[in-house]
Nucleic acid binder design. Sequence first.
DNA 1: AGTGAAGGGTCGAGGGCCAAACCATTTTCC
DNA 2: GGAAAATGGTTTGGCCCTCGACCCTTCACT
Lengths: 240, 240
Amino acid sequence: VLPSASSRPDAVFARVRSQTAFEETVDQLGTAIKLGLLAPGSRLPAERDLCERLGIARSTLRQALTALGHSGHVYATRGRHGGTFVADPQPPAHPPSPEMLSQWRETCDRRLAVELGVAVLAADRAESAELDALDDVALALEDALEDFPAYRQADIRLHVGLAEAAHSACLVREMTEVQGAMTDLIAHIAHPPEVLTSSNAQHRRLLAAVRERDGMRAARVMTEHLKGTEHVLAGLLPGG
Amino acid sequence: VLPSASSRPDAVFARVRSQTAFEETVDQLGTAIKLGLLAPGSRLPAERDLCERLGIARSTLRQALTALGHSGHVYATRGRHGGTFVADPQPPAHPPSPEMLSQWRETCDRRLAVELGVAVLAADRAESAELDALDDVALALEDALEDFPAYRQADIRLHVGLAEAAHSACLVREMTEVQGAMTDLIAHIAHPPEVLTSSNAQHRRLLAAVRERDGMRAARVMTEHLKGTEHVLAGLLPGG
DNA sequence: AGTGAAGGGTCGAGGGCCAAACCATTTTCC
DNA sequence: GGAAAATGGTTTGGCCCTCGACCCTTCACT
């Protein structure tokens, strides 16, 4: 009845991704650690508590923790005041895998969607106290122009914090996922202080727009902000 | 070193969702059928081909097809020109589950993010021919004001088509997922023709903005468009 | 020394998924 | 009419993941 009857999106028969519980746990905890959401030196909940929160068996959780311990991201101590702790310092990041690099544009697209949604929703729902806390993070960003790892860390806090201010649990989760993927991509490329300075200007304008409840202005600033990274990647990676 | 050291997003220790390959296949194919991406009466690829495309074993695929057959969404015939076909007519939709209803706001948030990303990217990347095809779909929408199932079908074609015009495979996939969830929510509520008329006006403005490569205007129109459905849901469902 | 809380380890049962056959049915071709 | 081909339908065996239960080891506090 409609035109183009034979057009069927490839997504319909796309590969079904079935990660095991073990893999998903390693990804989730590993990403949280890499993003600094779990600070180095901080203690994870006890295994018997954590496995219940994650909805998996303790033996499965232990496999994940063993893997994270083997890669140097966590360590465990036994005894009365023991526990599993985030390693400090963290092990050096791996260079991005070839398949990761080949999907960099898709990753940027996902990020654009999540960040735009967060910007618009945060402008609607953010509370004053939450924005005050984000202003503090923006201040910290100003002092980290020379130390990219520290800058990236604060940048992540800002973006994830904005997602929390949007009061949408699913967007917080998607934000952490996509920031994890982005970190893998940009951790190994140069970031001159000038670029970070202009990024900070955009952060300030973004927070101002959100505070004034101007969702569309926030979306516009966010778009420009993300275009910056995308241009850097387009210059360095194949498949532009 | 940073303020608010003890704030840890709930997402870090959120429940790990490990769907089985069987469940994911039922979801993926079932959603494609419910959305009309696989037209009633059309034939699916042969099991031996399809399982390879999906990256699963044939026995697992057969479990999914058996489940879809049991619910009346597909039927199979044997022999030289046999195959698995999408049922025509489709079985009536189930009323949304309580847990689905309780998550309606999160679903809307996800949709906002995906649709905003698609709107901005489509304005950047859509080709003229793709937009012409979407104009045809918009025309079909004008003639379906009295028949909500048909309207919804065309509406989905428009939104998924826009995602394809954004040339981002992952956003197409997310769009189908989120449209499937939205369909479950809105299939059982009243849609007076006046609402659909105003929706159509927004569709036209959206396509116009995309054609003029004005991403931010497309985003603004899209936001208004989605606010409409959200207000309807907010009036009918709990937890506003 | 005892207790309690934490991680470390082992074992077996159950189930999902896979691979590779083989069976049944229908159509086409020789 | 019979063979071949293409399809869905069925069975079997095995591997690996996950679970749950149990016990051990370590170590601070009392």
